[in-house]
Simulated scan of single mutants.
Amino acid sequence: MRVSAGERAANYGILVFFALLALAPVGTILVTALSPETPADAEAGGPLHWENFARAWEQGRFGEYLQNSVMVALVVVTLATVLSVMSGYAFGTFTFPGSQVLFYVFLLGIMVPAEAIVVPLFFDLRYLGLTDTIWAIALPQVAQSVAFGTFWMRAWFRGANRSLVEAARIDGAGHHRVLWQVLVPVARPALVTMVLLMFMWTWNEFLIPLVMSPSGQLRTAPLGLALFQGQYVQGTTLLAAGAVMVALPVVVLYLILQRHFIAGMLSGAVRE
């Protein structure tokens, strides 16, 4: 089917319009973050006030909060990725008694919201002495991420090329070698997409770190931004600078992995 020049121009026009509509809030925040905070700053000259980021970093203690977020994200993404790959491989390639029922139990982690279980979970973790530790923040998010990761990787493994597995079997490879040396390298787009989504959800999580660290010793970046907002309600410039710093790691990671992410979205989730 051939598309005329007019139709092509209309399609691009619509895409550009919606792209600008989506990017307008981001541009507003960036412009606000680089605006003068006080009239004295405006009189000092310079169209871009990069010192706002340094002020927000120091006054909002974003260095500490970002470090906590990085530690939590590393624990959650690492554990959830390994467990999701193994469980997805088991559900996607094996048939055993109760596999369907057990798979639906895994899916409960996607369907049940965190708000429904966070209070009893807090008391359980407090009984174990884990509150105000990185494990109290990370383990509930690992469970949530594994539920999604199992669903995601099961769909990919069920549609994987069986000839690769059969060739590896003929060469004497066991399940461990077939999974990690044959299938996982081929599943890179789906894995990258899963890792990026897990990182984004973990980085932006607000409720679990708030509840599981009642003393505030392990505030993550979103919690720090909310606290900063309470302190600087009128200082929209510093607040915008803090918001940019909190969102920047996710944006940078997406830009680095963009090609694999798009490939995984197009193919990794439609192999059911």
Rank of each mutant, 00 (worst) to 15 (best):
R158M: 04
R158H: 13
R158N: 12
G159K: 06
G159H: 03
G159E: 06
G159F: 03
G159D: 04
A160H: 02
A160S: 15
A160I: 13
A160K: 05
A160R: 15
A160L: 08
N161I: 09
N161Q: 15
N161P: 14
N161G: 12
R162E: 12
R162M: 14
R162I: 11
R162T: 07
S163V: 12
S163I: 11
L164M: 13
V165T: 15
V165H: 08
V165S: 12
V165G: 11
E166I: 14
E166D: 06
A167W: 00
A167E: 10
A167F: 04
A167Y: 01
R169A: 03
R169E: 04
I170W: 00
D171M: 00
D171A: 03
D171C: 03
D171L: 07
G172P: 08
G172M: 02
A173N: 07
A173L: 03
A173V: 08
G174T: 09
G174I: 12
G174D: 02
H175A: 13
H175M: 11
H175G: 09
H175Q: 10
H175W: 14
H175P: 03
H176P: 09
H176Y: 10
H176L: 14
H176D: 07
H176I: 13
R177S: 14
V178E: 11
V178M: 14
L179H: 04
W180P: 00
W180E: 02
W180G: 10
W180D: 01
W180Y: 08
Q181V: 10
Q181D: 00
Q181G: 03
V182P: 01
V182W: 12
V182N: 01
V182E: 07
V182R: 00
L183V: 06
L183E: 07
L183G: 11
V184H: 05
V184I: 08
V184E: 10
V184F: 07
V184Y: 04
P185D: 02
P185L: 11
V186A: 10
V186H: 14
V186S: 06
V186K: 07
V186C: 11
V186F: 12
A187K: 01
A187L: 00
A187W: 08
R188G: 13
R188T: 15
R188P: 12
R188D: 13
R188W: 14
P189Q: 06
P189E: 03
A190C: 06
A190R: 09
L191Y: 15
L191T: 06
L191S: 01
L191Q: 10
L191W: 10
V192R: 09
V192A: 02
T193Q: 01
T193N: 01
T193C: 07
T193A: 09
M194G: 06
M194Q: 13
M194T: 09
V195W: 00
V195H: 10
V195Q: 03
V195F: 03
L196T: 04
L196R: 00
L197S: 09
L197Q: 04
L197I: 12
L197E: 00
L197V: 05
L197T: 08
L197F: 08
M198C: 13
M198E: 15
M198S: 04
